[in-house]
């Protein structure tokens, strides 16, 4: 699984992740208070220029924004048809700018930096005894570690269907997949505890 992070040394790369997230929150609030299409268009353009400064190709930018393009265009068209062209343009540029700025933060921040921010943000919760802050990093690591394993289990179950001349069906794949995966929880938990990774109080 490749992260959406892009290597680089721009100002955005060097800003601390917490600062970037605060700026993103402030910008998105600001974007919702602005109702002038031209101003929102400038914001969207700035987001686009920001991507260009990361030295990635136009194709790569399109690849990153494609999942959002359709829904943004649909919502803008709906708004334009029912409320007028100005409102449609406002919606289009606002939603495009939001997605572009958010994608910019994702591209310039490493997964590790994000995990550190989340762990720090979870500290107050740890004091309230809701969760342990270090569990966040541990569980993220576990998920990333097991996705490829589950995919190969999926392939094994699917091939077992083919070998018996059966068509793979959602139920006959997902039930054995869940049971065989969740069965390994005891072993994994024992391994984690044996290594003292979660220091028990």
């Amino acid at each position: 699984m490749r992260s959406l992070h892009i290597e680089g040394d721009s100002v955005l790369h060097r800003l601390p992740a917490g600062v970037k997230l605060s700026i993103l929150a402030a910008i998105s609030l600001a974007l919702f208070t602005i109702d002038i299409p031209a101003l929102l268009a400038v914001a969207a353009l700035a987001g686009l220029v920001g991507h260009a400064l990361l030295r990635i190709s136009a194709a790569e930018i399109w690849h990153r924004m494609r999942p959002f393009a359709l829904i943004v265009v649909v919502v803008a068209l709906f708004t334009a048809v029912f409320s007028g062209t100005t409102e449609g343009l406002t919606a289009f540029f606002r939603l495009a700018a939001l997605a572009l700025f958010a994608s910019l933060v994702t591209a310039t921040t490493t997964t590790g930096d994000f995990i550190n921010v989340i762990t720090r943000a979870a500290m107050p919760l740890e004091r309230l005894d809701v969760l342990k802050a270090q569990d966040v990093g541990l569980s993220i690591g576990l998920v990333i570690r097991f996705v490829p394993e589950i995919l190969s289990r999926y392939e094994v179950i699917r091939d077992a269907h083919y070998a018996r001349g059966l068509k793979p069906r959602p139920l006959s794949i997902i039930v054995p997949l869940m049971i065989s995966t969740l069965r390994s929880a005891d072993e994994i938990a024992a391994a984690i505890d044996a290594r003292g990774i979660r220091s028990q109080k």
């Binding site: 569980s139 390994s184 505890d193």
Partner: peptide, 13 residues
């Protein structure tokens, strides 16, 4: 730990 692992495994699913 077992509950944490079960949640993580399901997230992976």
């Amino acid at each position: 730990t077992r509950d944490l692992v079960l949640s993580a495994l399901f997230a992976a699913i």
